[in-house]
Simulated scan of single mutants.
Amino acid sequence: MTPVTVVTGGSRGIGAATVRQLAATGHDIALCYRRDTAAAESVLRDVQAAGRRGIAVQADTTDPEQVVRLFDAAQELGEITGLVNNAGVTSPIGPFVDLTVTDLRHVVDVNLIGYVLCAQQAARRMSTGAAIVNVSSAAATLGSPGEYIHYAAVKAATDTLTTGLAKELGPRGIRVNAVSPGTIWTDIHTISGLPDRPALIADRVPLGRAGYPDEIAAAIVWLLSPQASYTSGAVLRVAGGQ
């Protein structure tokens, strides 16, 4: 059976790199994106160039009805065997006391509620042998003081979600893991007000640099693969030693 994987936030950054690597290893892909249709179509062309089937679905993962529509569309490719919960946002970097309720709610909605809604739909439709990978962050343990503590707190919740789901879904033969990236060269930093943040934090990282999307995608692809058949409940840190 050909694996069918849903990737949220699949039009850019880590998500796009993951889609391309999954297609190269034989997955058919349902790619979810929020706004950039041109970017999503570009990634979809790469899926098709790899000889795989793919669809791009524009959906807001914080909206339960749109999440149902996403998974209904994905099932047209076949039985869903994988989910990569990747759609995420930050907010402007700054002191904790300056955090607005609007930014707080947006970060919680996208990075936690969206993950829960997608995992819920996946769990309802998956069977033995399927797998979920949640994209967390090294911020979950570093805390991100002076930057975005609320984002770090939500990513810590992602780790807890991973642990709980792995225990609940394990008896059904469904594996659940997380990948915890450090700072990665993607455009997610633009919204924080520091698009060159990956360069600025390099001296904090034992390996002396920020990471690249393909390095995170490789870990995600492995966790979805048969080679990770006894790995569940893990939070795989890919953060350059941080």
Rank of each mutant, 00 (worst) to 15 (best):
G146E: 04
K155F: 01
Q120G: 01
G129A: 09
A140Y: 01
V97S: 13
H189A: 05
D109Y: 03
R172P: 00
A140N: 07
P145V: 03
I184G: 02
K155N: 06
Y148E: 12
R124L: 15
L169K: 13
N111K: 13
L161Q: 10
I188H: 07
S144W: 01
H150C: 03
G114T: 07
Y148H: 13
T160N: 12
D98N: 13
A122G: 01
S144N: 13
T160P: 00
D103R: 09
P145L: 04
S127V: 09
V176S: 07
G129N: 11
R197V: 04
A139H: 01
Q120C: 01
L165H: 04
Y151F: 07
G173I: 05
A131I: 05
V116R: 03
P171C: 10
I201V: 15
K167R: 15
Q121V: 08
A119P: 00
A131M: 08
S137T: 11
S136H: 09
T162V: 05
P95Y: 01
A199F: 01
V107H: 07
V179C: 10
V135I: 15
L200Q: 15
I113K: 12
D187R: 14
I184E: 03
N134H: 14
N177M: 04
V133E: 11
T163A: 14
H150T: 13
P95R: 12
G182W: 02
C118W: 05
L142W: 04
D159A: 07
R197M: 08
D98H: 08
L194D: 10
G94D: 06
V116Y: 09
A156Y: 01
T128D: 14
T128R: 15
V176G: 09
I113H: 12
A119S: 14
T162K: 08
G146R: 06
T162I: 03
D187Q: 11
L194I: 04
V108K: 10
Y115N: 11
H189V: 00
S136A: 15
D103L: 01
T163C: 00
V179H: 11
L104T: 05
A123F: 00
V133M: 11
V97G: 00
T102R: 14
S180H: 02
S144C: 06
V110S: 10
I174V: 15
V108T: 12
I188W: 01
D98G: 08
W185T: 05
S137P: 04
T128I: 02
V135F: 02
M126A: 14
